[in-house]
Structures are given as C-alpha cells and as structure tokens.
Write a protein that binds this DNA or RNA. Structure first.
Ligand SMILES: [Mg+2]
Ligand SMILES: [Mg+2]
Length: 212
RNA sequence: ACAU
DNA sequence: CCATGT
C-alpha cells in the first residue's frame, strides 16, 4: 500500500513543554489533557521549526473543528427508498458495530455488535453484506446504500482486503464474521443493486451512528 | 487524491 | 490529531 504522506514532525506551541517533537507519541504527551493546547503536524522538522517561530495564529484551529458539518449540496436528490447501512468503530483496533435502516422512515431493521478489535472497513463490509442478506431473505428488490467505497469494493469482488483480517489481528469473532460474509457472497447471486451514498450531496447516511 |  | 482502505 502506498503510504500516506504522514506528518513526521509536530510543533507544540502551547503544551507542557513547547517545542518540536518527532513522533505523535511524544507530542501527545505534551498535549493530551492540557487545557488550551495548540499543536500541529508537519511533513518535516524544518517546516515545524519555522511554524514554531511564527506562532499558532498563522495556522487556524486550536484543536477545534467546525462545529457543524458542511450543508448538503443536493438534498433534493436524496434517495427516499432503500436500505441504508453504516458502521461505527472506536478507533482502529477498537469495538465495531453496524446497523441497517430502512427508507422511508429510517427505522432500524438490524444491528450487530459491538465486537472487539476491528476496523471501520470491517464494520462497513459486514454491514453491507448483512444488508444484502436481509433484503434477499425477504425477497425485497430495494437498493442498498453504503457510504464506504472500500466496503462496496470488497463486496463487489466478494472478498475483503482488510489488513487486520489478513494478519489475524482482528478479534476472533470478527474474523469469523468476515469469513462467513465472504462465503455467503460467493454462494449467493443476490442481484441486489449496491449504491454509493453521496454524503457530500445528501448529508450523512441515515444509518450513521452520529459519533463523529 | 478520494471514501470512510 | 489518529487510523483503515483504493
Ligand atoms: Mg460510514
Ligand atoms: Mg457513519
């Protein structure tokens, strides 16, 4: 996997001991639980050092993000019929749960978890497969919506590509559920339409857990 | 970069 | 700010 351009240096303007740090772990010690802390990551130590001189004012936030999400761009086109699925994960390696919600109305029709030691993508994948099985069992012809490109991709190829599954670091229960989901996909021609939920246009998917 |  | 993925 092409690694993301990750921050390598962190400037702490306000914290236990202001300065430049070379790992998030070090930075976090200076900043976590420190009221009014101001800090930011940079690609390298040179940029971080310059930022330390300039002060935090040049770099907007103080750990605060916009309180409200951006407004949907096309709420008029928001789907009114279908099964929406979503997952929640308490950090990579944290607890995973997922659910499905039926439109119109957004009534919850299934929910599973929390299961220990998973990832966002494992949850999104299980949610989507559960949605397909749910619709198939009832002979429903509705589309399923997911906001996860990763999950849609895995389901389309009927196999997950989770690093946490591949190397066995996911919880045993999740490991088994993913395996079962893959087997189910490979054995059923569900014929259900899978659609991407366009969050930027329509707002959060109705199945969202609202924890962000 | 994009989606979470 | 972190992490999981294409
Ligand atoms: Mg989601
Ligand atoms: Mg969500």
């Amino acid at each position: 996997m092409a690694k993301r351009a990750r921050n390598k240096a962190y400037v702490v303007w306000v914290g236990r001991r202001p300065g430049v740090y070379h790992s998030w772990a070090e930075c976090e010690l200076q900043v976590k639980g420190f009221d009014g802390a101001r800090f930011k990551g940079f690609p390298d130590a040179t940029e971080a050092a310059r930022a330390l001189e300039e002060g935090p004012a040049a770099y907007w936030g103080a750990g605060e993000r916009p309180r409200r999400p951006a407004a949907p761009r096309a709420p008029d086109e928001r789907p009114t019929k279908g099964l929406c699925v979503d997952a929640a994960c308490n950090g990579a390696g944290g607890d995973v749960e997922y659910r499905g919600v039926l439109l119109p109305g957004a009534a919850q029709v299934f929910h599973a978890g929390p299961f220990p030691r998973g990832t966002n993508n494992i949850g999104e994948f299980l949610a989507l497969v559960h949605g397909l099985a749910y619709l198939r069992q009832r002979g429903e012809t509705l589309p399923v919506y997911s906001d996860s490109r990763v999950a849609i991709g895995w389901v389309t190829r009927k196999q997950s590509r989770s690093g946490w599954i591949a190397d066995g670091s996911a919880g045993a229960e999740l490991q088994a559920l993913v395996r079962r989901a893959e087997t189910w996909l490979q054995g059923h021609d569900h014929g259900i339409e899978i659609r991407k939920w366009e969050t930027a246009d329509w707002g959060e998917i109705p199945a969202d857990f609202g924890r962000k």
